Computed example of a mutant assay.
Amino acid sequence: MEIPGARLLKQIARYLRQLTRAPAAAHDAPHRYGVAMNSLPIDTSFDFRAEPNCSVDPDRRSPTLQRYQKLLFSKALPSGVMFNLSEKTSGIDHVLVHESDLGTFELSSDTILNSSKGPLKSFYDELPADVNAAWHRSSIGARLLFPGNQVDGKWTINQARGMTKEIRDRFDLTLEAIRRHYLGESSPLTDVLARYKDFFALFENFDNYVDFFLLNDLVNENGSVRFYIPFGGFDKPALPATFQEYVVFRNAQLDFLAGRTQRIEAYQTENLK
């Protein structure tokens, strides 16, 4: 008799092992010295941790990640105005900056997948080591830009979503908070999102924000967020309560990653030849 959660465990193991294999045609060129090599400008299978000094925090230190995000998001805003991004450094951090009549926006990268291995260590440790190792591959599909400058010395969005107990670094819950921001509704991130209202105003509404950052695979056809696990409101615990729920939680993130990666591939094939 199969133990509860065993089937899901097999699914996630198989899915993660497939994820580690580069697609056959587009990514058969080797990676040497941490440099992504591909016939298209963005190699969606490239692990940014392979670059020098990037094994711990590629969001801050990877020049390849910086270049990929510049290619993806230097494009027209819904208004038609170009959102051109320039590569800059802030201390040791690689950031992207837009400067125009619209204002100055400094953007930094952050991961939008989270295993929650700290608070859910017992669940994390139940998964095979190779499955967990595969999870922590750092590819472009799992990265997103947020405003990186502090306002009045207060938390950035990245800091707030990691430290707010109702969010616990879950990107689906972060996206729900952003959706509510556009509707003028409250969430645990109301204050921090309001500090960056000029950034969100660039996209005019939630649908445009989702389209611009290629986040469509985490949104249902009716415009609602596709939560990793059933969402009962921000007053309910943010993290899975059982191992089986934890596996569902991780599988849902992998589905999002796979979908967004394909979307990035399609976008660059159409726009970045």
Rank of each mutant, 00 (worst) to 15 (best):
I3N: 11
R7H: 09
R7C: 00
Q11V: 15
Q11P: 07
Q11F: 14
I12Y: 11
A13G: 14
R14Y: 10
R14P: 07
Y15D: 11
Y15R: 15
L16I: 15
R17N: 10
Q18V: 07
Q18F: 08
T20R: 12
T20P: 01
A22K: 15
A25P: 07
R32I: 12
R32A: 02
Y33L: 09
V35Q: 14
M37A: 02
N38K: 05
S39F: 13
L40Y: 15
P41Y: 08
I42D: 04
I42R: 08
I42S: 03
D43G: 02
F46A: 00
F48I: 06
A50T: 14
N53V: 11
V56K: 14
D57V: 12
P58T: 01
R61E: 01
S62C: 04
P63M: 06
L65H: 08
Y68G: 00
K70L: 00
L71G: 00
K75D: 01
A76S: 08
V81S: 04
V81T: 14
M82S: 13
M82V: 12
F83E: 06
F83N: 07
N84W: 08
G91V: 08
I92P: 09
I92D: 06
H94N: 10
E99D: 12
S100H: 08
D101V: 04
G103C: 03
T104M: 03
S109F: 05
D110C: 05
I112F: 06
L113Y: 03
K117L: 00
G118L: 10
L120E: 04
K121E: 09
S122L: 03
S122T: 09
E126Y: 07
L127T: 13
L127Y: 11
P128V: 12
A133N: 13
W135N: 09
W135V: 09
H136I: 10
R137Y: 03
A142D: 13
D152Y: 14
G153S: 10
W155A: 03
W155S: 06
T156F: 03
N158D: 11
A160Y: 09
T164C: 08
T164K: 13
D169I: 03
D169M: 03
R170S: 05
D172W: 11
L173Y: 15
A177N: 04
A177R: 06
I178C: 06
R180G: 01
Y182H: 10
G184L: 10
S187A: 05
S187L: 09
S187R: 11
L193R: 14
L193N: 06
K197Y: 07
K197D: 11
D198V: 07
F203D: 01
E204R: 12
N205S: 05
D207G: 06
N208D: 11
Y209C: 04
V210W: 04
D211T: 13
F212G: 03
L215A: 00
L215T: 01
V219W: 11
E221D: 14
E221N: 12
G223Y: 11
V225T: 10
V225S: 05
R226K: 15
Y228A: 04
Y228E: 13
P230H: 05
P230E: 03
P230Q: 07
P230W: 06
F231V: 15
F231W: 13
F234R: 05
F234G: 00
K236W: 02
L239M: 12
P240D: 05
Q244G: 00
E245Y: 06
F249V: 00
F249E: 02
R250M: 13
A258I: 15
Q262E: 12
Q262F: 03
R263V: 02
I264V: 11
A266G: 05
Y267H: 13
Q268E: 12
Q268Y: 08
E270A: 09
